[in-house]
Amino acid sequence: MIDFGFGVSPSSRINLDSADKEKFNELAIAEPDVLKCMACGSCSASCTAAAFEDTSLRRAILSLQNGLGDDASKLLSHCMLCGKCTMVCPRGINTRHLILSIQKIYSL
């Protein structure tokens, strides 16, 4: 892809070829539920930490799918693991373990 360098704002283009798929595969083994998400946003709507800081599991999963691991771990760094998202998730995703796994794989 050619970058002409004329953009005013930084490019938001995502290059999946350069994304690190290893970590995502590792995550999918540690917590396969990450593949179940349908991005309904129930988790983000009920989030306790979201009242204070920018926190969203839905967006974190979306970022991971787009190969943006850093964004994902930033979005979850304020999480208090209270478990409300587990209770509301219509897909029955084990969100707490998913969050812990993302933090372990992408942040450590």
Binding site: F52, S77, M80, Q103
Partner: peptide, 15 residues
């Protein structure tokens, strides 16, 4: 396993 995970809880003190 999990205690080493680093998170940003600075907002708690502010609140």
């Amino acid at each position: 396993q999990n205690n080493k995970i680093q998170c940003d809880y600075s907002y708690l003190g502010k609140y």
